[in-house]
Design a binder for these strands. Sequence first.
DNA 1: TTAGGGTTAG
Length: 612
Amino acid sequence: MMISRTNLALHTFIKFRGNFITNSFLLHRFSSFQLGLQFRCTQIASLHSNVSSNRSMSEKVRNLDDALNLFDEMTQRRPLPSVVKFTQLLNVVTKMKHFTCSVNLFKQVCALGVAVNNYTMSIAINCCCRLHRTNDGFALLGSCFRRAIAPNVVIFNALLDGLIFEDRIVEAEKFFKKLSNQKVCEPNVVTYNIMIKGLCKFGNNVTAVALLRLMEQKDCKPNVVTYTTIIDSLCKDKMIDDAFKLFKEMVFEKGVLPNVISYNSLICGLCKLGRWEEASKVLKEMEVENISPDVCTFNVLVNAFCKEGKIEEAEDVINIMVERGRVPNIVTYNSLIDGYCLRGEMIKARATIDSLRLRGLNPDVFTYNSLLNAYCKNLDIEKAMQMFHEMTEKGLKPNVVTYSTMLQGLFRVRCSADARKLFDEMHAQGLVPDEYTYGIILQGLCNNLQLEEAISLFRLMGNGKLNSNIVVYTILIDGARKCGKYDIARNLFHELNDKGLQPNVHTYTVMISVFCLDGKPQDAKHLFVRMEESGCPPNNVTYCVLLQGYLKKKHYDDVEMLLQEMHGRGHSLDASSVSLLIDGIASGSLDRRMLKLIGKLVPKELLEDPSL
DNA sequence: TTAGGGTTAG
């Protein structure tokens, strides 16, 4: 099924290849025209000293060393160059993303007695925010008032963005309301867009849409960024139909033209849901609208193919992208490397990494995390460790994902003590474990039958976000089940209610399994009914777990009823359930008449499985 | 000078 869908998508995609080639011809002609235009513009610009001085600053300064040398030279001049010159230099350094350096230069400019302005301040504040030092940004806002510089909307926007960058959403909302209500400054479209981005980041699409409506009321016209931010968030939350609704509203009702980013969000959302045909349609629509796919568009497709193990198709996409003059970047190759890792083709993965250097690309943390993950999954912890050291030697800083992956690997090969050491090292590096890290540790401890240690760690995690996470709870309940501590599992399950946490299909299935193992199929049945009533319908796994519970306790009437229900709802059996049922029939405990029903519930792949 | 998209871990 998957294969045919992918092939169809590829087929449609390749069909567009003709279009791409035609367009690339047009693109070539367009580029020559643009070049001519640019040449004339440059001539005109050189007549205007303002523009030419801006150009010369970025032309003279090609790297950080150039910038620092120029700064030294500027500080020696008497009289000192104007604040405009210093600000231009700060801007160049900031564009290179040397934020710490930019802040230091700003301080030196102030120390020289140069009267900084609004523009200089906004650059310095933005740098503090990018460095996760938004509080320092607010301190600079304070110094604006002391220096009698009236902060403008750009400064407030940078600060609001800083709060959101640091996940300080509550403070961001307060700050935003203060700006709007106390008339500190009039929020502009950028202010709204930043606030909308923050709401989306925290999964609050509803409020984000409400803010969009407020903008319309306040006569602050939403633009393509406003809509695309929400469309992207809806796509990420798999609410693709709502995303399309908003997209249509933007284009047909509001007359706001979509751009390549709007289309990329939709294509990515569709690919993640495996809706390949629709993704191809959107791609075609883009072409019709004369919006060329960019590196991100192609990367979305490469990634989607690699995730399905269709590396050859992904390579085709890369070839098309090169034909269209787009240069594959590290993200492209990381997807490819991840695809090889997924198929266990580690030699090809390594070879792709080696080829990066020839392309002038360097492996990054993502590249190594993929490799580490693959080695850990193959239980080759030594190779994983080797990679871990290799990445540090290359000056790459392992992140929370790197450590979480390594921890999982160590637990899988039952090296809890080493895992503990690595966890301490992670702390020492100043990295803060997230809910995934804790999930891995709790699962690792449980699998190594260290349930008590897992529970005490869980209790130590406090009452915050970490232990109010349904996935973490489910891991712990499952851990208690694996350790045979059914009463502990039950108590943990009851705690969910107190914390207002909604169990998901995994949680219910684990708990049903607990009841079955504890020899209480009636309790399992009650929970099975309850989950459906709570709006969480059972899946295949839930059915099979309950079925096995009934079989174990010889509740054959329930077995038959459940099989009928599965058939009615289009569910299927897994391998272990099928073999248990067949055993039951062979031993005469189950009626032979049920064979026909069982036959209908066996998926095709299993019929072809020689092990059965 | 401020805003939106693509890669990793349960």
